[in-house]
Computed example of a mutant assay.
Amino acid sequence: MTDELSVIELIVGASFTVKLVMAILVAASVTSWFMIVQRVIILRRADAELLDFEDRFWSGMDLAQLYREGSNAIDEGADITGGEALFRAGFKEFSKLSRQPSMDAEAIVEGSRRAMRVALTRESDRLEHNLPFLASVGSTSPYIGLFGTVWGIMHSFRGLATSSQATLAAVAPGISEALIATAMGLFAAIPAVLAYNRFAARVDALLNRYDAFVDEFSGLLQRQSYAQKGGSGQ
């Protein structure tokens, strides 16, 4: 308890600049932890939703029926994301283009793929949301803490210059409170860096799976389109 109180006393007794640095680091740490928890929930949900959709998609269900189920879910207030969002974008464009007699099979497939690529970009933005903030916290927090430490040490030595007794006991408290800023900078940076690296890897894995689905679904649409158009492009 004594150690805890002494740390608190050092923080309270720090100069205004060092206190400001500490406040910035505390705010960055709290915000990054909030975003870390949020990303964990979102990425877990994205994994589960993709597995569930792939099971339904490859179960042999009629694609029109699968699309209608998604439309009903949207009408009930559900938010369609992930693989199902890609499917809906591609299937909607495919259905619209297939009704145009002037469109050949290749143009229909290309239009559907283009729609899915747009949807994939939106999914990428959704999954990567807040990751730049975590990267910024991880890269800048140690330097912000170091700035607070340097400033605190300068403040301590200025006080030492006006002191009648230049002893270690006179300067040690000031240096100690300054070093707390560096410790807080590392405390904010380390979880942010670890979380960013982990989340970036998981997002890349999810995007690769989405990309594979786009290719597989495009192949399926191509076969269906050529069957409808008789492979003649008429």
Rank of each mutant, 00 (worst) to 15 (best):
D3F: 06
L5K: 14
V12M: 10
S15Y: 08
F16H: 08
V18F: 05
K19H: 08
L20H: 03
V21Q: 02
M22S: 03
A27K: 13
A27G: 15
A28L: 15
S29N: 14
M35W: 06
Q38L: 07
Q38W: 09
R39L: 09
I42C: 09
L43Q: 01
R44N: 15
R45V: 06
A46C: 13
D47Y: 09
E49A: 09
L50V: 12
L51F: 15
D52T: 13
E54T: 10
E54K: 13
D55V: 04
R56Y: 01
W58V: 04
M61A: 15
L63T: 04
A64P: 07
S71C: 15
S71Q: 15
I74K: 15
I74F: 15
D75Y: 00
E76P: 06
E76D: 13
D79Y: 07
G82A: 00
G82S: 03
E84F: 08
F87S: 02
R88H: 07
A89H: 09
F91T: 03
F91C: 04
E93A: 06
F94K: 04
L97K: 13
S102I: 07
M103Q: 14
D104M: 04
A105W: 02
E106M: 09
A107H: 13
A107K: 12
A107S: 15
V109Y: 05
G111C: 04
A119H: 06
A119N: 01
L120Y: 01
L120I: 01
R122P: 08
D125N: 10
R126Q: 05
L127C: 04
E128T: 14
N130I: 01
N130C: 13
P132Y: 04
F133I: 13
S136E: 05
V137C: 02
V137Y: 02
G138D: 11
S139R: 06
T140L: 10
T140A: 11
P142M: 03
G145I: 09
L146A: 07
L146K: 08
F147E: 00
G148E: 02
V150G: 08
G152C: 05
G152H: 06
S164F: 10
A170T: 10
A172I: 05
P173C: 00
G174D: 04
S176E: 00
E177M: 05
E177H: 02
A178H: 11
A178L: 10
L179C: 09
A181K: 00
F187N: 03
A189P: 05
I190L: 14
I190N: 12
I190Q: 10
A192K: 12
L194E: 06
Y196V: 01
Y196I: 05
Y196K: 04
R198L: 12
F199T: 07
A200L: 11
Y210T: 01
A212M: 14
F213S: 07
V214L: 01
V214A: 00
D215L: 08
E216Q: 13
G219Y: 11
L220R: 12
Q222C: 11
Q222K: 12
Q222P: 08
Q224K: 10
Q224E: 11
A227L: 02
S232M: 15
G233Y: 00
